[in-house]
Computed example of a mutant assay.
Amino acid sequence: MIDVDALIVFSAVIDSGSFSAAAERLGQTPSGVSRTISRLEERLGMTLMRRTTRRLQLTEEGTWLLGRARAILADLANTEAEAAARRSQPSGLVRVNAASPALGHLLAPLLPEFLDTYPLVQLELVSGETYVDLIEERADLAIRIGALPDSTLNARRLGSSRLRVLAAPAYLDKHGIPRTPADLGQHRTLGFTAPASLNTWPLRHDGVEGWTVAPAVTASSGETLRHLALSGAGIVSLSHFMSRADVAAGALVPVLEEFALPWTQPVWAVFYKQGALAPRVAALVEFLAKRLGEVLEE
């Protein structure tokens, strides 16, 4: 039977990129790690990786085993977390992937409360602006804003946030205030590199619902566009959740409000589910479903 400790060592070597780094991470010696990998290869009768002085490269068999090892170790971790939940409350590490605006404006203000409620849960927060493969990125949960691509993943809607067209007073003082959506063609607009649908703004004009702009500046991150708008670089369309504090402070002001459409962006918790959701993940999803719903309605 394969030793679970050997699978832990094998995964650590791949995740850390070297025997020495894995040894440090596991509190072992590099020679001990090397012997464990050699015994695992001997046990399975296959070569798992090719080793050079500069890098490790998985063989086809190694890639297969890595997927199996991660699934086995994740199942063991979930079993341990479920046992802890039966004894007291959810515990263990939850890896969360979210776009930087969601991390900064939605999650960060609420997570202290979550951690106080579930002190045995640890969080690892990773910023990602695009669709993420949860298995490949080893994420337990992703927070995504907007329409979701077709997926075999499970998703739970946490709420929605209104889109608004905004600009800094300094920009408007210098370049004037657009009076109709058609005037945007004479202004510097800020938009997203992808998807293109984000550059259709929530404005109605001449019987058209949704006004498409040709941005002078594009960025992959809404947070980058927010900072550009705050600096007076141009006019932008952003979710209310990430701009409301700026509007309240007068750093950004709504424009073309008389043409505004009540468009909103849904906020999703996305997770990979096989069987029961791990208690530590379920606890975070339930918490966000309750608290984000309240925050997004403000």
Rank of each mutant, 00 (worst) to 15 (best):
D3N: 15
F10P: 00
G17Y: 10
A23P: 01
A23G: 02
E24H: 13
G27N: 12
T36W: 03
E42G: 15
G45P: 07
T47K: 14
L48K: 09
T52I: 10
R55M: 14
R55H: 14
R55V: 13
L58C: 11
T59S: 08
E60M: 06
E61D: 15
E61I: 00
G62F: 04
A69G: 03
A69K: 00
R70V: 07
L76P: 00
L76A: 11
A77F: 04
E80N: 02
E82V: 05
E82R: 15
E82H: 07
A84N: 05
R86G: 11
V96N: 06
S100D: 11
P109A: 01
L111G: 06
P112K: 02
E113H: 14
E113W: 11
T117C: 06
Y118D: 05
P119Y: 11
V121W: 09
Q122N: 11
L123P: 06
S127W: 03
E129G: 07
V132S: 09
L134V: 08
E137T: 13
E137V: 07
I143S: 05
L148F: 08
S151M: 09
S151C: 05
S160L: 03
S160M: 06
L163F: 04
V165T: 12
L172E: 09
I177F: 15
T180H: 11
T180N: 08
D183Y: 03
T189A: 01
G191R: 05
L198N: 12
N199D: 15
A214P: 00
P215Q: 03
A216Q: 13
T218Y: 02
A219Q: 12
E223M: 12
T224M: 02
T224F: 01
L225Y: 07
L228T: 01
I235E: 00
H240P: 01
H240M: 05
M242P: 05
A248L: 12
G250R: 11
L252F: 08
P254M: 11
P254C: 09
V255H: 01
F259I: 04
L261S: 10
P262D: 15
W263M: 06
Q265G: 00
Q265W: 13
F271Q: 03
A276Q: 15
A282E: 14
A283R: 08
A289W: 01
A289I: 00
K290M: 07
E294N: 09
L296Y: 06
E297P: 00
